[in-house]
Amino acid sequence: MATDAALRRLLRLHRTEIAVAVDSAFPLLHALADHDVVPEDKFQETLHLKEKEGCPQAFHALLSWLLTQDSTAILDFWRVLFKDYNLERYGRLQPILDSFPKDVDLSQPRKGRKPPAVPKALVPPPRLPTKRKASEEARAAAPAALTPRGTASPGSQLKAKPPKKPESSAEQQRLPLGNGIQTMSASVQRAVAMSSGDVPGARGAVEGILIQQVFESGGSKKCIQVGGEFYTPSKFEDSGSGKNKARSSSGPKPLVRAKGAQGAAPGGGEARLGQQGSVPAPLALPSDPQLHQKNEDECAVCRDGGELICCDGCPRAFHLACLSPPLREIPSGTWRCSSCLQATVQEVQPRAEEPRPQEPPVETPLPPGLRSAGEEVRGPPGEPLAGMDTTLVYKHLPAPPSAAPLPGLDSSALHPLLCVGPEGQQNLAPGARCGVCGDGTDVLRCTHCAAAFHWRCHFPAGTSRPGTGLRCRSCSGDVTPAPVEGVLAPSPARLAPGPAKDDTASHEPALH
């Protein structure tokens, strides 16, 4: 009773807030009518008042009428009001819900409408889902798969039609296919003929059939049928067999079959498995989609049935006599038709004709302190090069084509190399640097090759510096006499390219 009084008091307290929050009759008014909170006449009256005075006034009048009803109607109103779709449509209802007392429970059932309790003993237990329907569909599909699609060729003596089998029958139906081979029951999904010589313990000319048996419980189990008994694959494991010639990621696949039913060829011909030897223990289905393919039931050349050999690369099948050149017997292992072999060759040939990528240039590290003349020119003028003790990398590039010797140069053309002071002394051009340390401070000019250098860098042994005729380390061993002091540049003949010694390969005349 306390809860009923509290709900009535809360409705009177929030009546105006609810009326202002509800700006549309749908969905709240319609939901109240659906849950029998508002009768039909009051529903029509509220809609009429909404058209006349507006939605807030109409709902305020409806809530005032609701306060005169019993506690069950008020409880049902609060339940409908706080439904998710009403809270989404009328956003101003959320503060009312947040301020609702926590001790007021809106989930209690309506009085007088409590459903009768059902004894637990009368409640049926839930049924577990079964796979009976899938099993029945598999039974119905198996006879259809064994139905012949056409008439065999005159040369083929193997013609068999499976008798119709009602689904209610649980007995196995067997077809006489000759040579002791028996087909599987209607619940078998796949059958492959297997030679009895590969099964340990088999006697006589009995041949087993590799099947997948579907049981009534819905589970499946792969086994071997020899005669009327089934054997699990673990009985046929043979770890010492060295003649297993397995197909790549293979499961067994029928390579020879008669049109209309699988079996042995007439005249004692023995149908073979995809792999010879003992049956392997793992009978998992292969991951290669080509091995799941269903080959055609007629020859791809003459479009006739009979004894066919199936290609492992495509769905086509052929007569042995229709092949070019014809085959006398079934080859062992994987067999592919000429079209598949030709496609494989065409895929391999473009790969062989692809040009080989060019090898990157060989990189040879230079000892610290040495650099090529090109690196000396590329440096920024007026700045010493940083990191001189790091190992430089010199790339061996292809030799350029031989060019004509340089033409003779006048001494005026070499004027930018040297600057003559007032006393006739050779001065260095701006930006000249030593080729060893890279520093341009207090550098000297070689009178023979006009290269800038430090005496301490080229002659670290402490050799005394002569007063005139300074030469760098590369030119100090040259027998050519030094030019007379005061000459602007060496003779043009000295600039012609010539053979250089091994220790002077990195010091070429550089223009500054």
Results as ranks from 00 to 15, higher is better:
residue 63 L to R: 01
residue 75 L to I: 12
residue 177 L to R: 06
residue 258 A to C: 12
residue 114 K to L: 10
residue 230 F to T: 07
residue 108 Q to C: 05
residue 104 V to G: 01
residue 16 T to L: 01
residue 95 P to C: 09
residue 12 R to Q: 00
residue 168 S to H: 13
residue 124 P to M: 15
residue 57 Q to G: 00
residue 211 I to V: 12
residue 46 T to R: 04
residue 51 E to W: 00
residue 176 P to G: 07
residue 154 P to R: 05
residue 195 S to C: 09
residue 218 G to T: 11
residue 160 A to V: 14
residue 21 A to I: 01
residue 36 D to Q: 01
residue 125 P to A: 13
residue 147 T to C: 03
residue 171 E to M: 15
residue 219 G to F: 05
residue 232 T to P: 08
residue 263 G to L: 10
residue 120 K to P: 13
residue 97 L to Y: 15
residue 166 P to M: 14
residue 3 T to N: 07
residue 112 G to R: 03
residue 114 K to G: 04
residue 165 K to G: 04
residue 40 E to W: 01
residue 153 S to D: 06
residue 251 G to A: 08
residue 6 A to V: 07
residue 70 D to W: 00
residue 72 T to A: 10
residue 76 D to W: 05
residue 183 T to Q: 04
residue 39 P to K: 00
residue 24 S to P: 00
residue 43 F to Q: 00
residue 50 K to C: 04
residue 218 G to V: 11
residue 219 G to V: 12
residue 60 H to I: 03
residue 134 A to E: 00
residue 14 H to S: 01
residue 204 G to I: 02
residue 88 E to L: 08
residue 146 L to Y: 13
residue 19 A to P: 01
residue 215 F to E: 05
residue 63 L to H: 01
residue 138 A to H: 03
residue 27 P to E: 01
residue 263 G to P: 08
residue 258 A to L: 07
residue 246 A to K: 05
residue 104 V to T: 03
residue 231 Y to E: 06
residue 91 G to R: 13
residue 121 A to I: 08
residue 48 H to G: 02
residue 109 P to Q: 07
residue 35 H to P: 02
residue 218 G to E: 01
residue 119 P to F: 14
residue 42 K to L: 02
residue 187 S to F: 01
residue 248 S to G: 12
residue 65 W to L: 03
residue 59 F to G: 02
residue 25 A to D: 03
residue 161 K to N: 08
residue 69 Q to Y: 04
residue 181 I to H: 00
residue 230 F to H: 04
residue 237 E to R: 05
residue 77 F to W: 00
residue 51 E to K: 04
residue 212 Q to F: 04
residue 143 P to T: 15
residue 248 S to K: 05
residue 62 L to A: 01
residue 126 P to C: 03
residue 245 K to N: 04
residue 143 P to E: 15
residue 164 K to H: 13
residue 105 D to E: 08
residue 48 H to R: 15
residue 176 P to I: 15
residue 227 G to S: 03
residue 273 L to A: 09
residue 136 E to S: 09
residue 237 E to V: 12
residue 98 D to L: 06
residue 272 R to L: 10
residue 209 I to E: 04
residue 155 G to F: 15
residue 259 K to F: 11
residue 194 M to Q: 08
residue 184 M to A: 02
residue 110 R to L: 14
residue 197 G to C: 12
residue 243 K to F: 07
residue 6 A to R: 06
residue 8 R to K: 04
residue 150 G to L: 14
residue 3 T to E: 01
residue 186 A to D: 11
residue 71 S to A: 11
residue 61 A to P: 00
residue 163 P to L: 08
residue 74 I to D: 02
residue 26 F to L: 01
residue 260 G to K: 06
residue 156 S to D: 09
residue 265 A to Y: 13
residue 253 K to R: 07
residue 204 G to A: 14
residue 134 A to C: 14
residue 116 P to Q: 14
